[in-house]
Amino acid sequence: MLAEALAISAVLFTIGVIGVLTRRNAIIVFMCVELMLNAVNLSFVAFSKLYGATGQVFVVFVMTVAAAEAAVGLAIIISIFRHQETVNLKDINLLRG
């Protein structure tokens, strides 16, 4: 099942990349990043079946980092929305607040 799991992981990661590159909504881009993290987690779990439980430990770390990233990223999006009234990445082009 390792080859199939890695193939599913690769397809999911590619879908996530396509979403990041094509979507304009900042929240959906964020969700695509989460999808890519999930795809990597699938690879970790698939390899942990071969090489022991260390891969699952890394999945726990990835989940923690994803939670932290989601909290901070969404707070930034809320902050930008308060300032500019949009979450469209095309309209967010100023570094100056």
Partner: peptide, 27 residues
């Protein structure tokens, strides 16, 4: 479900609780 099928039951539960249950709710 795939995690559980690959003998990573704990990770499967964490996936449902943390990802589907917490992170996506924040989104």
């Amino acid at each position: 479900a795939l995690y559980v099928m690959m003998d990573a039951q704990f990770i499967g539960v964490m996936q449902v609780l943390v990802y589907a249950g917490a992170i996506m709710v924040v989104f």
